[in-house]
Design a protein around this nucleic acid. Sequence first.
DNA 1: ACAGTATTTATCCAACGGGTTAATTTCTCT
DNA 2: AGAGAAATTAACCCGTTGGATAAATACTGT
Lengths: 235, 235
Amino acid sequence: MAKAKRTLKWQRDPEGMRLRILEAAKQEFSAHGLAGARVDRIAAKAGANKRMLYYHVGNKDELYLAVLEGAYDKIRSEERGLDLEHLDPPEAIRRLIEFTWNYFLRNPEFLSLLQTENLARAKHLKKSTKVKSMHSPFVEMIRTVVRRGVESGDFQVAVDPVQLYISIAALSFFYLSNSATLSVIFGRDLLDKKAKDERLAHMVGLVLAALTGQSVALFEIAKAPKSRAAVAQTV
Amino acid sequence: MAKAKRTLKWQRDPEGMRLRILEAAKQEFSAHGLAGARVDRIAAKAGANKRMLYYHVGNKDELYLAVLEGAYDKIRSEERGLDLEHLDPPEAIRRLIEFTWNYFLRNPEFLSLLQTENLARAKHLKKSTKVKSMHSPFVEMIRTVVRRGVESGDFQVAVDPVQLYISIAALSFFYLSNSATLSVIFGRDLLDKKAKDERLAHMVGLVLAALTGQSVALFEIAKAPKSRAAVAQTV
DNA sequence: ACAGTATTTATCCAACGGGTTAATTTCTCT
DNA sequence: AGAGAAATTAACCCGTTGGATAAATACTGT
């Protein structure tokens, strides 16, 4: 009460409101998909009136696209922060895998949004001029890392960087985005600490072994799960 | 007109009707997700009345679960048909990757259904007693293949079969389920013949190189896309 | 201080969509 | 044949939902 002015019925804050709306929309769309998302819930979550969504962003579809573009924007900008140029090739690849894995872990909504958009066959993304111009810097990074690796003799073969990029993303993405069904099927929790550590070790080991021809130390960890079975538990 | 009896208003065909409903539901759910699916459209597609869905299967959720269970049922039964016991380890792994890839290609609805279910955090699958008992036979298959490979010296290291299974699935799954957004981002069609051939070659090469320590012939194809790559395939 | 504009609230509504009710038609068994 | 059960149709119900309209309230510059 005793704060600055006295509490008015409401204050203006267009920028803040827009951000809160987009954040709420991100939550809602990633939790329920496009069709399952409820405009009213987004409004409520943003502490706003439903009319505000239309006023500040647009209708449901525009809202969704804005969220999607924001998500791409965010990952691309983080990707740019990671420079692999000065690392030796195997270390650069390891770093890349770790970044991808951790980014997905820290931003589960990103995974959900991509799933949702792919379910829609990228119908919305195709309309976005924004996203099409945001190339991932990774592909070129990988290209030079691979070239350096081959030249130095660290890597036994030159892979197509796009394929490698997709594979690295795939190994993390699928594990995390499908962890719910996989956990049911395998009857164990794929998201507990130990399982996650093992997964990261496995991925790094797999990719580096393929590139260098030598199985990496970390790969071995996954190898002999001394079989008090890796489990830990689910549901 | 001049057929068998004369055309009655309608014939009875409970089993056929049930199948048509489930098939239509599979299409609808995989195309639009759970929330996006329309019960009326399923009925129309099945050449039936909406009431029939409820009569033969149940409400929307039950319909969805039946479809999901059917999808798992199908892949598990095909998996069982694949026996890798008599192949030498590297060949068995290659076979496994090819099967997975081709199955996903031939059954795109399976991918969509899994995405949908994971978006729902496997809420429905958890309720299915059926699916929980249908363990994939792959894990045990892989375990013995890996053991044989290590013993014979073909493989340089013993991987955890669950991790390997997930990785093999991941490499195909992600590429296909996310091909829509990836195609937009890379500005090229990941689903044309050439791209698919290269992808399969890359996956086989990656996994086998990791296991054996030697880069496989096929791996090279991806590198220098001379592309008349292996394969035979699909769709 | 006040006029004009930007921001927010309070209601409303028409279409949609899942599900239900009740009547109708075909089949089967005796 | 014909009665009872099974399968199918047709019509309706009603809460939900995206979106729109109009009025109120807070700012801004002059």
